[in-house]
Design a protein around this nucleic acid. Sequence first.
DNA 1: TCGCAGGGCCGGT
DNA 2: ACCGGCCCTGCG
Length: 274
Amino acid sequence: MNLLEIQNYNFEKTLLGGQAFNWDKSNGTYYGFFQDKVVKIVPNNRGFLWQTYPENDDNKFLENYLEIDQDFYEIRDFLESKDDHTKKALRKNNGLRILNQEPHQTLLSFILSSNKSIKGVRKAVRDLSKRYGRDIKVDGIKFNLFPLIEDLILVNEEDYRNLGFGYRAKFFYRAVQQLAHIDLIRDYTEDEARNILMQFDGIGEKIAECIMVFGLGFREITPLDVWGKRILTDLYGISPNLKYSEMRLWLKNYFGEYTAISGQYLFEYIRESR
DNA sequence: TCGCAGGGCCGGT
DNA sequence: ACCGGCCCTGCG
């Protein structure tokens, strides 16, 4: 195991909150499964111990994924001084970060998220990985990796329906076919990324922005789901009749480059307060 | 057991 | 621009 010294990294909120569906915690240890690896993280009082499998010591992946080099103190100062809501959200969720996830896994996971609870999405992602993901053994435990596109390309729509995907089966099937032909890159402009993603069947404005923030590195937007809209209406007095695009503009003007991280803090905050 | 909502999206008006 | 319908699951 490798030691990485860092303070103020809240793994509980970051890995098990609503931004990723591929982490589990047992006995204080976090295991995350990806298309080509499993990552193990054990927090301690200096930072955390970590290892990657089957290729060990992949610190390049780890540090990029966890955004280790981001200046958390800047984020903390922003939330501390912005307003009472962000201040309270910071107190409740100190150390929450935004992950840099892989585009394909992020897109496929969030296509399953529509009209589903977080718990339901986690189940769907695990059902998918159990059925079509490759196996890997870590610490004597068998893990299922997230499936590769090349393994999903031959699966048909009905197979997904049998997995319990419901009406999302068609969207998921089509997304796999499309992903086999295009490559999602991180240097689209914001409008380009949104347009490209929304061409996928089953991806609307909200899911597009989930993929943009969690999988493509955009930070000046935050996905507006039912909870995001409650943040705007209940906390900030914004009219619920505003269009999505008008709310997006309000957020960008108010939170600027901290929109995504503010959205995450407020999301966790408002969900816990209900 | 039953009813409802869940980090929405699509297609017809 | 609105709105009903949609597959299935977890929760009260």
